[in-house]
């Protein structure tokens, strides 16, 4: 069955009907890394991020019956990861409210593809510097759309902003990135 159930929502339905471990494991394998990385950008600790991802996977298991109506389990899981991560930060900082704007977001570029001939080490350092200097939500939009391949709509849901804002944030990020290139390649 493993090759046939690629769609995450199908997997979830399979888990609900048959309580199947292999399906749950498959869901875990596809969601866990995404959840962990996303949570890491917020909590900035490997251990805590792992705990958050594991917590979310458990919540999915416990609520599987109710989740059969959820349209997009990936988005749902990421929203859960966001909330749990923010809760952890809230407890750490002992503040009553915490929003995505209040915290430092940590983001690394995942680029070690051998085909990236244009992106040498120097440019990569520059890119990382640019991305680190982006505003929080802009950084998160870049991460979710580029690194996790989510759509504007999905990203908007997770970050609680409008689709237009997602577009604007991403355009800002790409503009900053390309402006660095301009210098590099002597474009005008």
């Amino acid at each position: 069955m493993s090759s046939q159930l690629t769609d995450l929502n199908d997997l979830l339905r399979y888990i609900t009907v048959f309580n199947s471990e292999s399906a749950y494991k498959q869901l875990f394998m596809s969601l866990y890394p995404v959840l962990k990385k996303f949570s890491y950008t917020l909590v900035k600790s490997q251990e805590l991020a792992e705990e958050v991802a594991s917590d979310v996977m458990m919540k999915i298991w416990l609520a599987k019956e109710q989740l059969s109506d959820i349209k997009n389990i990936k988005v749902y899981a990421l929203i859960m990861a966001r909330n749990i991560s923010l809760n952890i930060i809230k407890q750490q900082s002992k503040r009553e409210f915490i929003s995505l704007d209040d915290i430092q977001i940590e983001l690394f570029l995942d680029t070690h593809s051998p085909e990236q001939i244009l992106i040498n080490k120097e440019i990569k350092n520059k890119l990382e510097f640019i991305i680190q200097s982006l505003p929080n939500r802009c950084k998160l939009v870049f991460k979710l759309v580029k690194e996790d391949g989510l759509s504007y709509k999905e990203t908007a849901e997770i970050l609680n902003i409008s689709i237009k804002t997602v577009d604007a944030h991403l355009v800002t990020a790409i503009k900053k990135i390309t402006s660095a290139l301009k210098v590099e390649f002597n474009l005008n």
Binding site: N19, F28, E50, M57, M58
Partner: peptide, 21 residues
Amino acid sequence: LEEQYNRHKLRFSGELEFSIE
């Protein structure tokens, strides 16, 4: 991931009830 999955299973062994097992 395998390792993380096994840890996850251990951590929630009480709740994760799979039918086959």
